[in-house]
Simulated scan of single mutants.
Amino acid sequence: MKVAIAGAGAVGRSIAKELLENNHEVTLLERNLEHIDVDAIPAAHWRLGDACEITVLESLQLETFDVVIAATGDDKVNVVLSLLAKTEFAVPRVVARVNDPRNEWLFDENWGVDVAVSTPRMLASLVEEAVAVGDLVRLMEFRKGQANLVEITLPADTPWGGKPVKRLNLPRDASLVTILRGPRVIVPQSDEPLEGGDELLFVTVSEVEDELRALLLDPTAR
């Protein structure tokens, strides 16, 4: 996969290293000469330039990339790059970093963003996920499809204990993607029995989250 990352600060470099370790081709675009350090990540392609300048993006041949990641520390830059990547270069996947949660409303498909990643929001969600047994926690939003990654931790005394996954009559547009049980990551099979304390991860649309919550956490709803 060919990936362009705008912003070679700590975040951009960390992403680049992870992607390179997974054998992806990575280009780092940075407008600050002081942040250019080829020796730090020699396997990446380094380019000096402003990610908001369309001539710079043309010189990169951005239309040939599979993914663009707007990872600068400036939300204005990230939004503008996302819009240019999607509308001018038809990049299939655009991921944008949200630095200020007050700007989250901008990072949607209208501005070319497929996935918005807000560090403060994610940290808050992870805190909730760690302590919120018996509730639904939204971990991430997938803007393009208006779908969410949500987590539900079953209480120890869940009535679903011992019942197989196939007994779950999930609402439409909700899919169980994995079960976290202690150190185990379980790909849900139809005959896999549920247990109290299981962390269930779903991809679902917002409209059925309440129905999903009721199904798994409200005994009177079944």
Rank of each mutant, 00 (worst) to 15 (best):
V3S: 03
V3A: 00
A4W: 08
A4G: 05
A6L: 14
A6Q: 04
S14L: 06
K17L: 07
K17A: 03
L19V: 05
L19S: 10
E21C: 03
N22I: 07
V26A: 07
T27G: 02
E30R: 04
R31P: 00
H35G: 00
A40M: 05
A40P: 03
H45N: 14
W46N: 03
R47C: 07
G49Q: 07
T55E: 15
T55H: 14
L57Q: 09
L57P: 08
L62S: 11
V67G: 06
T72G: 08
D75H: 13
K76T: 14
L83K: 13
A85E: 12
V94Q: 01
A96V: 09
A96I: 07
A96K: 09
V98R: 08
D100N: 15
E109P: 02
W111C: 12
V117W: 09
T119V: 15
T119C: 05
L126Q: 02
V133L: 01
V133M: 13
D135H: 10
M140F: 12
G145V: 04
L149A: 11
T153E: 13
K163F: 10
P164A: 04
V165C: 01
I179T: 04
I179A: 02
R181T: 06
I186S: 04
I186G: 02
V187A: 13
Q189L: 06
L194P: 01
E195Q: 08
F202L: 01
S206C: 00
E211H: 05
L216G: 13
